[in-house]
């Protein structure tokens, strides 16, 4: 049996790599401290939202509430949630006219008579982070600054974010931006400070028609379960296989 330097280096290298990965695995095994929010067990919840497009009146209350609750930048305007106004022309149904002045922050005042455009299809679509179960944005983060929480909310650790913008490009729904004040990525947190205390999100709290509803997909008694059974719901861009958890009722096929 010979024992040369090359073999020794290889074996020691293997030992080093394996022991390092074992130490990481061990830390994951011994983890399991209780959560910081009292009376809230993360693993008991799996948050999602149901949006009834037929009920959205385009008042923009959700946009204003979100900004007030979460201190979202006003100048320049960035959005954690916004409302889009769709006009589908019967001559070209694949290419709707989409407008969202200030994200709907000031509502959508309509100039002209309400029946001046009878040949087209009109509706509003509120949008926000879809809190995907297989979110592309968390997969591309190089530093572990964004993640899916055990209760299904996609969050950002502002202390870790480098503002490399990979996640902004990775989100197929355009839900992320760089906050110019902190130079970190920012997005909807599903009002994590509220839902962990048993309250609903600011947008759902302030939707006057009940078009948006927060739901706990793990709670069999949550009204969202019946809503999903009673309606033909879809998610945005299902072909992206993101596992989106914002369910839209009666969404037009022209919405992207």
């Amino acid at each position: 049996m010979t024992f040369d330097r090359r073999k020794f280096l290889l074996d020691t290298g293997k030992l080093l790599v394996l022991s390092a990965s074992a130490s990481v695995a061990w830390e994951a095994i011994v983890a399991g401290k209780p959560e910081t929010a009292p009376n809230y067990t993360m693993t008991d919840h799996w948050w999602g939202m149901a949006i009834d497009v037929d009920k959205c009146i385009g008042c923009g209350s959700c946009v204003r509430a979100c900004k007030a609750e979460n201190n979202v930048p006003l100048d320049p305007m960035y959005f954690r949630t916004w409302v889009e106004q769709y006009r589908v022309n019967p001559d070209d149904m694949d290419h709707p006219t989409v407008e969202s002045p200030n994200g709907g922050y000031d509502g959508f005042p309509f100039k002209g008579a309400p029946d001046s455009d009878p040949k087209a299809k009109h509706f509003f679509v509120p949008k926000l982070c879809n809190h995907c179960a297989d979110s592309p944005c968390t997969q591309v983060c190089p530093v572990g600054a964004t993640f899916i929480s055990p209760d299904g909310v996609v969050l950002i650790d502002k202390d870790y974010c480098l503002a490399c913008r990979y996640c902004v490009q990775a989100c197929p729904y355009g839900c992320r931006f760089i906050d110019p004040r902190t130079m970190t990525a920012d997005k909807c947190t599903l009002c994590y400070q509220r839902i962990t205390k048993g309250l609903t999100t600011a947008c759902c709290e302030n939707c006057p028609t009940g078009a948006r509803r927060l739901g706990d997909l793990k709670n069999p008694n949550d009204p969202i379960q019946q809503f999903l059974l009673d309606h033909h719901v879809v998610v945005l861009k299902p072909q992206m296989a993101t596992g989106a958890k914002v369910y839209y009722n009666d969404l037009d096929g022209s919405v992207r």
Binding site: G107, P118, H122, F124
Partner: peptide, 9 residues
């Protein structure tokens, strides 16, 4: 914001 007439509502 809610009640002004608009074909989109």
């Amino acid at each position: 914001r809610c009640h002004s007439a608009s074909p989109y509502r």
